[in-house]
Design a binder for these strands. Structure first.
Lengths: 158, 158
DNA sequence: CTAAATAGACAGGCTGCTTTACTATGGCGT
DNA sequence: ACGCCATAGTAAAGCAGCCTGTCTATTTAG
C-alpha cells in the first residue's frame, strides 16, 4: 500500500509541519471519542453515534425542551429535534407534551435512556482512569488545568 | 433567549456531567481551529475551509500523488481528489501528470500555495505563542507532553 | 383582543465525506 | 508477446449532521 519512492525524507519533514497543538488536540479528542464509542457499542448501545452522545448529556433528569437542548448543545433547534427523533426511535428518550406550555414538548429519558446514562458514566470513568494511569497523577492534573485555562473556564471545583 | 425557569439548578448539574476530558479536548481543538481559520481568513485566504487546511499540510514540496495524500490524511482517494480539485480552482495547487507513471498525477503548490504555507506557519506560531503566554512555559510543556503520551507518539524531538 | 414572541415541525440545501462502480495505465508471469 | 491483476484516478450517488427559511400552533404582553 505504501509507496516508498514517493517520500524520500518527506515523511519526517511533513510530520514536523504537522506537529502543532491544534492537530494534537484534534487527534486526542478523536481518540477519546473512538474509545468511548467503542466501549458504548460493546455495552450494547450500538445505534448511538457521536451526535447522539453529544446531545444526551444535555438532557436533564426532569426532562428538557428541545430549544433548551439545542441551546446547550450549541446547535439549531431543528438539528436538536432531528437527533431527538432518532433517539426516540431507538428508545432512549420519549417526547411528552409539556403540561405548562401547549407549544412545548418535554424530552425525557426512558428506562433504556437511564441505563445509557449509567453506562456512559462508567465509560467516562474507565477512560479517565486509563488516562490517569498512562500519565501519572500530576501530569493528568496539569493536562486538565491547561485545557481549562485555554478554554477560559474555571478549573472545575475539584 | 434563555429560559430561566427551565433550569433551576440544572445548569450546574449538567455542567458537572459534561466535565470530562473528551469534551475538554474537543472544545480545545475546536477553539484552535476557529482561531486559526479566522486568522487565515484575515490574511486573505477566505476560500479555505477546515477540510482544505487539513489536507494541505500533507502536500510536500516536491509534489504528492493523490493516493498518497489520501493515505496521509486518512481519507479515501475520492475525497482527496475532490478537495484537490477545489484547491486547484482556488489557485493553491496545480495538477501535473507524473512523468514516471502515466496513471498518476502530481499535485503541487502554486505560488499562492507557497504563500499559504508561510501564512499558515505564522498563524500557527502566533497561536502557540498566545497559548504559551496564557499558560506559562512549564504548563505549556506539560500540556504537550501529556497529549503526546496519550497519543502514544514521541514527544517530538524538542 | 390583537400583536409579538416562542416552541416546534417541515422542506430543502450544504459540506465533507463514503461506497460502488468504471477507465486507463503499469508491471508481472509465462 | 499475451493475459492478468494491481494501481491511479474519476464519476456518480448516497449519507450524516448539520444549516437556513418558512410555516403553524400556542402563549404572553399591551
Amino acid at each position: 500500500m505504501t509507496n516508498l519512492q514517493e517520500r524520500p525524507n518527506a515523511t519526517t519533514l511533513e510530520q514536523a509541519r504537522q506537529q502543532h497543538i491544534g492537530r494534537l488536540l484534534h487527534r486526542a479528542a478523536r481518540a477519546y471519542n473512538v474509545l468511548a464509542l467503542e466501549k458504548l457499542h460493546a455495552q450494547g448501545h450500538t445505534s448511538l453515534s457521536l451526535a447522539h452522545t453529544n446531545l444526551l448529556p444535555h438532557l436533564d433528569t426532569e426532562g428538557t425542551r428541545i430549544v433548551t437542548l439545542a441551546e446547550r448543545a450549541g446547535m439549531t433547534k431543528q438539528a436538536a429535534g432531528q437527533l431527538v427523533a432518532e433517539l426516540e426511535t431507538h428508545g432512549y428518550v420519549e417526547r411528552q407534551p409539556d403540561p405548562a406550555d401547549g407549544r412545548a414538548t418535554r424530552v425525557q429519558f426512558t428506562a433504556a435512556g437511564w441505563q445509557y446514562l449509567l453506562d456512559a458514566q462508567e465509560t467516562k470513568r474507565a477512560i479517565e482512569d486509563e488516562y490517569q494511569a498512562e500519565l501519572g497523577h500530576p501530569l493528568w492534573e496539569q493536562l486538565n488545568e491547561a485545557l481549562h485555562r485555554l478554554l477560559g473556564d474555571a478549573p472545575s471545583s475539584r
